[in-house]
Design a protein around this nucleic acid. Structure first.
Lengths: 142, 142
DNA sequence: TGGGTCACTCTCCAGGGGGTAAGTATAAAA
DNA sequence: TTTTATACTTACCCCCTGGAGAGTGACCCA
């Protein structure tokens, strides 16, 4: 079992406390999990419960079949979604979140809310940045 | 100001409540923010406070100068980091998180902890998935 | 016989992400 | 005078991502 780390870590506990293996593992999960489509699929399934493949493709705006399949397969492999096949013709396949999936969705809640809450601020900042960089030559020059 | 949504949203509040503009905005932020390097830079700055360019490059494992610059520029534009230039030679540039940056880092805390907490579970799930898919032909065939 | 349904899978291909390495500016130090 | 230090920028190039679109299998229905 991995020992929980405080977050953000206090400066004094940084140097030796982080096992590079754990660092790598967590990074790997974060990378995969923070994938664009994964997050969007997660959200849609959280909202709509059990959804069939084609419908999911409609709900996740802009996803191609290829990417949808790939993302779902990945999420299934990670234990985030359950794939339920009804052996009929034409095929009928349903996707829904596992409890692990739900828990991840909940964890993402923070980021989601952050994005909503700070949207204006980011937009404003981008605006100012654009103006600033038009006017100002920099040192060192970029 | 954007009206806060409950999360996860209750089924009955889904259909009309989500303004597609807001949906798009949030998605855009999430996409950017979920960028691999952005997250890693965020983490390093949270841990180490104020850091110079070259050092940052060492701390963010595997990043190239090009990507580091790009990521930092982006984060600066979004108001997540401050870039402080000391006009000396050789150049001395320091990066640190803004309060907005800290708040995002905090929001990601949930995901970070999730990854740590559920690592074994995900690993196990992947293992099983691999075994399962070797044995089982599927319907419909993949 | 032919078309429709569903959940994929496969192939082709363009665009872009991102790596590498060299270039730049400047002054102090050796 | 050459080197070094620092924070970039630029050019070149390759590989991989991921989109578009067609194909597939099995059955039902007209």
């Amino acid at each position: 079992m991995i020992e929980p780390l405080s977050y953000p870590p206090k400066p004094h506990e940084i140097p030796k406390e982080i096992d590079p293996r754990i660092e790598a593992l967590v990074c790997e999960i974060i990378e995969r999990v923070a994938d664009k489509w994964t997050m969007l699929v997660l959200e849609v399934l959280e909202e709509h419960g059990t959804v069939r493949f084609t419908r999911l493709g409609e709900l996740v705006e802009g996803v191609s079949q290829k990417m949808l399949t790939k993302t779902l397969r990945q999420m299934e492999s990670d234990g985030l979604v359950i794939r339920t096949v009804h052996p009929v013709i034409p095929p009928h396949v349903e996707y829904s979140l596992t409890s692990l999936g739900h828990s991840l969705s909940e964890a993402f809640c923070g980021v989601w809310m952050w994005a909503e809450k700070h949207y204006d601020e980011v937009a404003r900042s981008r605006q100012e940045f654009r103006e600033r960089s038009q006017r100002k030559p920099d040192f060192p020059p970029r």
